[in-house]
Each structure stands twice: as C-alpha cells, then as structure tokens.
Amino acid sequence: MPALKKRVLIVDDNAVNRKYLKTVLKDYDLTEAENGIEALEQFNTTAADLILMDIQMPVMDGMECMKVLRDKNVSIPILAITAFSGNEDRDKFINEGFSDFLAKPLPPNTIRTVVGNWLSPDKQTLQVYTNKKPDYSEFDLDIIEDLKKYLTENEYKKLVVDFIDETKIFLNNIDLLTNKDDFSSIIRILHTIKGNAASLGFYRLSKLSAVLEAKLKNEQFQNFSDNFEAFKSNAYASFEAFKTQLNRNDD
C-alpha cells in the first residue's frame, strides 16, 4: 500500500450507488457529492486525484460538471459512469474530455482495476487528460543529439532504417496476433515498440504505443482493430516524417 492514499471523488445522485462505490474503493481516501454543483464545491475544498462521475444527475449533470472542470484546466482523470454502453457513446465521452468510460453494471474488480490503472504513476505521465486532443511532437531531439555523440551520421541513419524495418515487421505480427485474439503477445510487442521508439527519439510513436498498450492492459479490447489501424497509419506517418527530414538535411 502506498504511504499516502490517493483521493477519489465519487459523484452520483443515487445513495445506493455511492455506498457501493465507497465499499469497493474503501482502500482510497474518499469524498462524495450528489450532483455536479456539489462536486465542484467538494473539489474546490478538497482536491482529488481522480473523479468517478455519474452522467445523469439533477441540478448539474456529469458531462457539464466535467466540462467546467476541464475549462479550469483540471487535468486529473475523470471517469464517466453511465448506463450507456455503445461504442459511439464511448467515443463521445472521451472526445468531450472524459478520460475513460465505465458502463454499468460494474463488477468490483473492474472498478478497482480501472481506477488503479488510472492512478498508477506510469499512466499519469502517458496520458494527456485535457479536453484537447493529445498532440505530441514527432521527434525527441535531445535523444537524437545524445545518440549522435556515439554514432556517426551514417550509423545513426542505418540504425533508424533498421528500426523502421523491424517495427514494420512488428506491426505485421500484431495483425496476425489480432486474428488470434492473442492480446498478451500484442501488449508485449507494443511495449517493445514503445521502448525502442523512445530510445531512438521517435517520441510521438512511443507515446502512441504507450496509449494503445495501456488500453489493452485495461482490457479495452473492443475497437482494437480500428485503434490499431489508426496507430499503424500514425506509425507510417512517423517513418515518412523521418525520411522527409533526412532528405531535407541532405539538400
């Protein structure tokens, strides 16, 4: 157990639901509110590390409350709890600024896992929680400079070309593994891509691998093919960006 307990704010108008969440999350420092307005007041008095937010509430609903918080640059994880479960709803909530989406009914272990993952230190450095879409810079120039202390220009280029070739093979392997639903192998490969990309200065690719890896670790398997296709096109865009930069330098 960490020395300092993380604080979770539970926002739900239904007393039974609040009690259930409080029991499930008893290992955390808990505060609660009955609607959006109360949640804002509660949050102003006692800041939280994470908010669990019901959507349908009187006075001020969860969506509105979340937007008020995001407008104030509150960047902690805010997780929506709703009875909706369609993929369109999920995308809508995430696009509006929620960090994640929990559909009822909620088994205790799911709640603990998702909350625990969002509060893990790794997660906090990986995710950008603001309502703006994450916008990572393509390359980490510090890392590339560092590498060039040890490698000649040609060695560096050769290394990156090998990295791109190897990553393309990894991406094809993930395609094959997706057909077999072998998510644990996919997580391992994404982890490798994340580390390799970071070590070679492919910052954006590394961050996107981390996000996809985190999703799978949270057992968000639905939509994986779509997410992976998007990831792949981003990866290929990064490879192209590298080539463009090389050509520019060669001119």
Binding site: S120, P121, D140, D146, L147, Y150, K194, S206
Partner: peptide
C-alpha cells in the same frame, strides 16, 4: 525496462539486479 515507473525499484533489486535503467535509454 520500458516502464520502470510501473515496477517499484524493489522489484529489480529483489530479483537480484545490481542496477536498472529505463527506456528511453540515457546512453551516458
């Protein structure tokens, strides 16, 4: 490790490692 932050330092040391580094590697 690709994500040392996910594993407490004690995991590396308890396993018997002398030291560890996190990716992205700091080459110096």
């Amino acid at each position: 490790s690709g994500n040392a932050k996910n594993l407490p330092e004690s995991d590396f040391i308890d396993a018997g490692m002398n030291d560890y580094m996190q990716k992205p590697l700091n080459y110096d």
